[in-house]
Design a protein around this nucleic acid. Structure first.
Length: 174
DNA sequence: CCCTGATTCGC
DNA sequence: GCGAATCAGG
């Protein structure tokens, strides 16, 4: 497509109306928005009302130095920090027989060993509820721990918190 | 990721 | 002169 007088006029009109380059390109057809922008600049009509974004330019930008041979653009994208903190919520409170919470020292074989809390911050204990001797967890936690593949499709936030706690425990004890 | 205009430069 | 590629930013 060539820039005939008519097309140029249409371009001027649409540009004056505040249409974006891509919109104009679409209406004119046969050209890309880049073509439109390029033409607009050549015609010397860049600035407009400001229908879209003002977006000020540093002007003196190193600009692009056409580098077809350039391997690739390193451009490091802001990295997201790993994990702030385990921060486990005690979804499953840890009741206790006497007045203390079950700790690694008081944990009995017949107690639920479901970890609760963050070992790193000290507020950590085990569920401690009754569990079948030899069984790792109480009935409630056993259900959380041993979920059928099918139902595990979507973990509950409780289960996730618990798993986090387990991971944290291992980090500390090993 | 969508979009915007701005710029450079091979054609 | 043209416009793809690229940039910088919303």
């Amino acid at each position: 497509m060539a820039w005939t007088d008519e097309r140029v006029e249409e371009l001027k009109k649409l540009w004056a109306e505040g249409q974006s380059a891509s919109q104009i390109a679409k209406q004119l057809g046969g050209v890309t928005r880049n073509a439109v922008i390029g033409k607009v600049h050549r015609l010397g009509l860049s600035g407009r009302a400001a229908p879209s974004r003002p977006a000020r330019r540093p002007a003196a930008t190193p600009a692009r130095t056409r580098a077809p041979s350039q391997p690739a653009k390193p451009r490091v994208t802001a990295r997201t920090e790993p994990a702030p903190a385990p921060k486990t919520k005690s979804l499953e409170p840890a009741p206790l027989p006497n007045g203390e919470f079950a700790t690694v020292l008081t944990l009995k074989d017949s107690m639920c060993k479901w970890p609760i809390g963050d070992p790193a911050t000290g507020d950590f204990r085990f569920c401690g509820r009754r569990s079948d001797p030899g069984a790792a967890y109480c009935e409630a936690h056993a259900q959380l721990a041993y979920q059928p593949q099918q139902k595990r499709r979507r973990r509950t936030s409780d289960a996730n918190a618990a798993l986090d706690a387990i991971a944290a425990t291992r980090r500390v004890n090993f």
